[in-house]
Every structure is written in C-alpha cells, then in structure tokens.
C-alpha cells in the first residue's frame, strides 16, 4: 500500500551487513519513517547510527535487505523520482578543476537542463555569484557546501536530502546554511536533514526522528517530543502548607527568600492553582517554564535505552499532540 501525501515513508526497512567478527549486523533495523511533505525533518543520531545508510537506501545507492520504502509516493529504486529529489552528501567533494558555474552546468546536464539564467540565479541565491568563475579548488568549505546546495536546487526538487549540511563549518557559515534551508521550506520543499548537531536541528526542524544503532528511538513533532518540561512558580502571600495541601502530583514546594516556590510538571493545571492562590490573596512573583531541550532528549534516548535490545519504537503518536 502506497501512502499518499508522505514525502518519505518506510516500513520495516532493514539493511544488514555481514561482518567477519560479529556476523550479521543490522545497520538499519526495521525502520518505520514518515516524513510529511513540506516539512523540515531532522534525522538524528550519533555517528554510525545508520543515518547515511538510510539516506543511501532512499536514494537507491544501496539496496535494502528487507522492508519497503517510498519516496514521493514511488517505491525506492524507481529512477523517475530522481528528477524530483536532490542530495547533498556529507562533506561533499566536487570536481576541483571546474568553476562554480561549470559545476552547475555539469549537474544540470544530467537532467538535460541548460539554462544559464537559472545557474546565475541559483548562485546568487547561495551568495556565490561573485565567485562563480573561481574553481572549486579555490572555494572554502562553506562555499563548497553552498555550491552543493545550489546544485541540489537545479531540478527544483520537491524533496532534498542534506547529509550533515553544517558539518565542519564555522558559526557564520552555519547561519548562512541554516537560512538557506529555512528558505527551502518557504519554497514548499521537503527537506530531510541528517545531523548530529542538535542545536541546528532544534532551530529549524519541524519534526525529528532519533535513530540509534539502526533503530528509531523517537519520532515526532519537536514540540511534542520536548513536552513534559517543568514550571517553577513563585508565590507570595500563601504558605508552603497551603500549596502542599493542593496535592499536586510530582511537585516540590519550598520556602525561599521572598516567597514560596512550586516546582511542578507542565501537565498540571497551573492556571487553576494560580487562580486559587489569587483568590486566597496570594500574589504571583514569577512563572518560569523549564523546557526540555533536544540535547537532553537525545542523550536520554541514546544512553537510556539499549536500543538494539528494546527493538521497540517509541513513537509519539500524532493523536497525542495537542
């Protein structure tokens, strides 16, 4: 069954390598991935988690051993989909003897495109138009990454695979790339980013999947995944006991200088408590939400669950989102 409206859909996608020492190793194990059209999807995982292997399978550069995969509704291996997608590999290398313009011309010719105006427009978009006559060997890493993005736009792709797009770049280059990626979403493209740089992903991704040892550990909307943070509310004019009597789950109450501090989970009905406090001539000094950060989630996911043993995908279902 071919699901519609999904940019990427995999079902039990598995890639096995044979190792002399360890026998068969599932580099990607029963992967179920779902990427909506038009979103920026972060594919996260530590080095060697199977990120690049998954992308290569989706691009039919390598072949899965089991499971199914669909890219833009077409079964993987269908070359026609390659007209609609693009790929920027990790730390890419381009033919060094070519100029930026020549490089675009070369890649465009693989689509049968020859549109000088398009090449210049794309180079302008990635801010390389002043350097388009320089050879790639003269480009900095950031420039190479940008020319890579430009070539990835040649066919006006619906879906872009970017493997570690900011790997090894300085903060300014980071920002340039990030802005470009955000612009891709505005242009209506689906962007599939594989990365281990969580701060980047947190800033731009709509949804993420965390893969560890070939298994998806978490997948869902970033907002949902990061839910379950805590809130600290400082009261004046109520007693510690009054607050304790409210009987909130998983809460701590202690008196501090200038009031009483309640530390509780987001899920509790804080508004009702605040209303109750006010009506009890109490006053709210501050409300500080302590949100969960992606990094925490990531470290928790990677270190907590021995993923290979669990083999169970913990997915935050769409229905649970607010």
């Amino acid at each position: 069954m071919r699901p519609l409206a999904a940019a990427i859909e995999t079902k039990q996608l598995t890639k096995t390598y044979k190792s002399r020492i360890h026998g068969k190793i599932n580099v990607v194990d029963s992967l179920d991935l779902h990427v909506e059209e038009g979103e920026i999807f972060g594919f996260l995982g530590p080095n060697g988690a199977g990120k690049t292997t998954t992308i290569k399978m989706l691009l039919s550069i390598i072949y899965p051993d089991a499971g199914e995969g669909y890219v833009l509704g077409k079964e993987i291996g269908d070359m026609s989909v390659h007209r609609l997608i693009s790929y920027v590999p990790e730390r890419p290398y381009y033919y060094e003897h070519m100029t930026g313009l020549e490089l675009l011309k070369f890649y465009a010719s693989l689509f049968g495109i020859n549109d000088q105006a398009l090449f210049v427009r794309l180079l302008e978009k990635v801010n390389l138009h002043r350097d388009m006559s320089k050879t790639i060997s003269q480009y900095s890493k950031g420039m190479q990454q940008r020319v890579g993005l430009a070539q990835a736009l040649l066919n006006d792709p619906k879906l872009m695979f970017l493997d570690e797009p900011t790997g090894g770049l300085d903060p300014i280059a980071h920002r340039e790339i990030r802005d470009l990626i955000l612009s891709f979403r505005e242009e209506g493209r689906t962007v599939f980013i594989s990365s281990h740089e969580l701060s980047e992903v947190e800033l731009i991704c709509d949804r993420v999947a965390i893969i560890n040892k070939g298994v998806i550990a978490r997948q869902g909307k970033l907002t949902d995944l990061l839910r379950g943070g805590r809130v600290e509310v400082t009261f004046e004019g109520v007693t510690e006991q009054w607050l304790k009597d409210k009987g909130m789950r998983d809460s701590h109450v202690r008196t501090i200088a200038g009031g009483v501090l309640l530390d509780t989970t987001e899920e509790e009905d804080i508004n009702a408590l605040i209303d109750a406090a006010r009506s009890n001539s109490g006053r709210i000094v501050s409300i500080v939400p302590r949100r969960k950060r992606l990094e925490d989630l990531f470290i928790q996911t990677v270190t907590d669950a021995p993923a290979a043993a669990a083999k169970k995908t913990i997915t935050v279902e769409e229905s649970t989102s607010v």
Binding site: S60, Y63, P64, G69, E75, I76, G77, M79
Partner: peptide
C-alpha cells in the same frame, strides 16, 4: 525488485 538492483 526494490530489494536489489533497479535494472532488469
């Protein structure tokens, strides 16, 4: 078919 190569 998708399991291995894409060509006949």
């Amino acid at each position: 078919m998708s399991m291995t190569s894409g060509i006949n």
